[in-house]
Design a protein around this nucleic acid. Structure first.
Lengths: 139, 139
DNA sequence: TGATTTGTAACAGAATAAGTTACATTAGAT
DNA sequence: ATCTAATGTAACTTATTCTGTTACAAATCA
């Protein structure tokens, strides 16, 4: 599964925003702590902004701010904001309609997909950004 | 998430093996119903074999056979056999140890990863190949 | 012995993601 | 007003991964 690291980056970024005293944090500073390029961070910030988790400000002294209390941000929201994909991939080419299995497998896999996605979402819903901060503070 | 279609292929292949009367099914025939190349199927069969789900036979009249009753094959086993990866990716580059968040984020993300993987596995554990066959038979 | 199938190596092509450079746009500060 | 510093965004490179394909050795049955 060639999964992206965007979820890990997003949790990292939001944890920094939540733990920082300063109200604005620039993409350069975030990029330094994540150890990547500022543009990668800015692309991520746009998605987090569209999800309503942060807001950004241009110009000097600009940057990103958390819009909600950490207790009110679930990992599910973060995941959904930056990893829109499914848990696993579907058939790339249409299976043979000649075969009784091939004819209906897509529908069945679709249901399995839905249940898998929901199970993952349920688990991520039980954890918030505040839990992440608590874990980060532990020795 | 650039997820592979190997899980979908594997469920498809095993469903065909479970529903076929003939005891052996060649990679060519399986490839035709999945609509892909026989080598892709053979690579998949090796993984399913290593997981103990099927056995294969060389030579004429050779092919693959299901080793267990469909009721005894969970989707979790199938998934684990062909998609060894994690639910989401980790930081590709080590985060800055200067930053209090960067210093510990890997450990926290690891725990989240574990919980996500387990939640997915739990859900897939509740479904068997027999359930897939039942769904396939429904109009 | 011959035919057929798996196992496997090697490679092509496509897709995806991260990283990078460059620049227009915006907005605060002096 | 002007300078400066930040976001937003486009374009491109590079690396990785996956599927698909060809080719062939090894195995096995008739």
């Amino acid at each position: 599964m060639m999964s992206s690291c965007r979820f890990a980056f997003a949790v990292h970024v939001l944890a920094v925003l939540a733990s920082e005293k300063t109200d604005c944090c620039s993409s350069s500073r975030l990029a330094r702590t994540v150890n990547t390029n500022p543009v990668v961070i800015r692309r991520l910030l746009i998605e987090l902004q569209q999800a309503g988790l942060i807001s950004t400000l241009r110009g000097p002294r600009g940057g990103a701010v958390l819009k909600r209390k950490p207790e009110k941000v679930t990992l599910r929201e973060i995941h959904q904001a930056v990893e829109p994909g499914d848990t696993f991939g579907a058939h790339p080419n249409e299976p043979s309609p000649e075969c009784p299995v091939g004819k209906k497998i897509a529908r069945v896999m679709g249901r399995i997909q839905t249940r898998a996605n929901r199970a993952l979402a349920r688990e991520l819903e039980t954890m918030t950004l505040a839990d992440v901060l608590r874990e980060l503070r532990r020795p």
